[in-house]
């Protein structure tokens, strides 16, 4: 699905942090090592275990790598904008504007002392095109519309609530509404449903799904949950030790080639499964090797 003009193009992305152990070689530890992909208006899943570099990849695209980290890439382009050549100021105006991010846990990602409506409005004020901010009533109407779009039926009530007064699923919808009000082209969702109960998880995914389809947004869905990604995304990148070890269409994941992907799929217990003991991953050092081409 990578069309001629990809929304996002990433080539040889590398993220490194200074190592604590100065004696170990160059003094930098690479956590993302040569990741490359291009994204169209599709749902791209990035899966991997903790420490595989999946979140670091998402953060590097946004320009949210922790201070001290070093980001390099052969190409890192959003449309025609070269993200690496942007100043910090330009990156900031893109963030929340053209690229938005939904984080894992709404409990920590929302400002606890601001009402939900104010927080959403703040995003609009920060990113609205000049002269289009609108008056107070107009802005409130816009916030209400954003909340309705994520499936909240009584936006007037929800707008007045504080984050501690909303449930996890509602909080995550508020986050999504906040991200969407500036109408981004690209949404990066980092484990957006991991902190939620399964039933709520599906509601939030349905909201994301509808928005991506309806607005033609690109979505990068970062998750550790292979089954979820398989059922939700169009395409999947499997990351291991900072590298993409496999790239395939989500529907082909069951026919994955790489032993790591296959191992990850087979070590999950299944309803009605009778395999005892469960197969465990036998990690091979060559999986992490930089010379191995992604399958």
């Amino acid at each position: 699905m990578s069309d001629a003009h990809p929304l996002l193009e990433v080539r040889d992305l590398r993220v490194a942090y200074p190592s604590r152990d100065r004696s170990a070689g160059s003094g930098w530890t690479e956590v993302v090592r040569g990741v490359g992909f291009s994204l169209g208006r599709e749902r791209l899943g990035i899966v991997g275990e903790s420490g595989s570099g999946k979140s670091q990849t998402g953060r590097a695209i946004l320009g949210l790598t922790a201070p001290g980290g070093r980001v390099t890439a052969a190409t890192l382009k959003l449309g025609d904008i070269d993200l690496l050549a942007c100043s910090e100021r330009e990156r900031r105006s893109l963030r929340g504007g053209r690229i938005a991010m939904v984080l894992q846990d709404p409990k920590y990602a929302l400002n606890p002392v601001l009402r939900v409506g104010q927080q959403i409005e703040e995003t609009w004020l920060a990113h609205a095109p000049a002269g289009k901010r609108g008056g107070r009533t107009e802005r409130r109407e816009r916030v209400a519309a954003a909340l309705r779009e994520v499936g909240i039926d009584d936006p007037a009530r929800v707008m007045r609530l504080y984050p501690h007064e909303v449930s996890g699923g509602m909080g995550q919808r508020v986050m999504i509404a906040m991200m969407l009000i500036a109408e981004p082209e690209l949404l990066i969702a980092d484990e957006p449903t991991s902190a939620l109960d399964v039933s709520v998880q599906l509601q939030v995914l349905a909201v994301l799904d509808r928005l991506v389809a309806g607005r033609g947004m690109g979505l990068i869905f970062v998750s550790h949950d292979l089954r979820l990604v398989q059922s939700f995304c169009d395409r999947v990148l499997v990351m291991y030790a900072g590298r993409v070890v496999e790239e395939c269409r989500a529907c082909d994941l069951d026919r994955a080639q790489h032993p790591y992907t296959r191992g990850l799929l087979s070590c999950l217990p299944e309803l009605g499964g009778t395999r005892r003991p469960l197969p465990v991953l036998d990690r091979k050092p060559e999986w992490a090797s930089e010379n191995a081409a992604p399958r």
């Binding site: 275990e49 903790s50 550790h224 292979l226 191992g263 990850l264 070590c267 999950l268 217990p269 003991p277 469960l278 197969p279 465990v280 991953l281």
Partner: peptide
Amino acid sequence: LDASVQAE
């Protein structure tokens, strides 16, 4: 825990 560790 991660999926592979969960299995262990």
